[in-house]
Each structure stands twice: as C-alpha cells, then as structure tokens.
C-alpha cells in the first residue's frame, strides 16, 4: 500500500527561482545555488564527492569525472562534465581511434591532447536553472563512453590510468 502510494505521487512542479518583485540573485550566489543542485542530484545517487569551488569530482575505478559549472556571458549556466582517464603512450593511433568513435555521434566526445591525455567530455548550457535529470543523463553519457573505451585504450594504446600506480 505504501509503495503504491509513493508511485502515485507526481513530481512537483518546479518553483520559479525568483519572483517578479524580487531583485535577481547576485551571479556568485546564483552559481552557488545551482552548484548545490548538482551536488544534491549526485549525492542522491550515492556518489562520494570532492567539492572545490564550482568543481565537483567523482572518483571511479578507472577515471575521475569532474563536473564544472560556470556562468556564460548571456547569463546561462554552462555545465561541463569531463572524465579523465589517464594518458596513452601511442598518441597518434589513439587519436585516430577517438575520431572514429566521435563520428558515431553520441552527445559525449573523446578528446586526446598532444601529450596523450585522454578525456571524455559533455557540455550543456541551461538557460535559467540546472535540471537534475539532464545532469545525471550527461553523467551517464560520459561514464558509459569512458567505460566502453577503457579496455581498448589500455590494450591497444597503453593507457596509464589516473587511478593506476
């Protein structure tokens, strides 16, 4: 009975962040409040977080994922999610592999810099407020892609992972 009751509760409508007769929040305050939304969404999922300023890091076995929130010039909230996997030794072939995977056109992309540092990135700009569901979707995209390429990077391109000695 209790479970059925819970299932029937619809999601409450999102409350407006500011009312017309109230001054808008200072940019730093607005950014902080939105960071808490991201933190809350992640803690709700049970992640252990390391928070420094507007960067929130989650440590996984094979990568470190950092979520970073910033205000863009138009007042939008830009959220970037980037998983750091480590460094590959065979940089050029790994970049060719990454280009091929990126053409498969998922919302997250693999990036490998000239030194061989591999990351998987996803970005989104929210016009007003951060949407917890979109954040968790973005995180899933990044983590799924990072996990799916990890074994190949290790075996074929000699990845030295961020959490490996």
């Amino acid at each position: 009975m209790r479970d059925r009751f819970r299932l029937q509760i619809p999601e409450p409508a999102a409350a407006p962040s500011t009312r017309r007769d109230e001054p808008p929040l200072a940019p730093a305050v607005r950014l902080l409040v939105q960071r808490w939304r991201v933190e809350a969404a992640l803690r709700h999922l049970g992640f252990m977080l390391r928070v420094r300023g507007n960067r929130i890091a989650i440590l996984f076995d094979t990568q470190v994922t950092v979520l970073e929130l910033a205000l863009d010039p138009d007042g939008g909230l830009a959220l970037s999610i980037r998983a750091f996997l480590g460094e590959v030794i065979l940089v050029a072939p790994a970049r060719a592999f990454a280009e091929g995977r990126n053409e498969e056109a998922g919302p997250a992309r693999i990036e490998i810099d000239e030194a061989g540092a591999v990351s998987v990135a996803w970005q989104h700009t929210f016009p007003d407020e951060v949407d917890g569901d979109l954040v968790t979707n973005g995180l899933s995209e990044v983590c799924d892609l990072a996990e799916s390429i990890h074994a190949t990077l290790v075996e074929d391109f000699y990845l030295k992972g961020v959490n490996c000695p």
Binding site: E11, P12, A14, A15, S17, L25, A26, A28, V29, L32, V33, W36, R37, E39, A40, A41, R43, H44, V51, G53, G132
Partner: peptide, 30 residues
C-alpha cells in the same frame, strides 16, 4: 517544501558562501 527550500538557498549562499556543501540529499526533487 520545494518552495520553502528555494527560500533557504539564497540567504544561505549570501551568508555562508562557498563553505556550504550538500551533506545529504534524500529527496532533492522535494
């Protein structure tokens, strides 16, 4: 509770700034 929660955030950020963190989030949507 969602709307009252909204009221708490701005003064908390203004008074205590970056030292505030989310400790538990049993039901953030509420």
């Amino acid at each position: 509770s969602v709307r009252v929660h909204e009221l708490l955030l701005a003064p908390l950020a203004e008074l205590y700034g970056d030292s505030v963190c989310v400790e538990q989030a049993p039901a953030p949507e509420h």
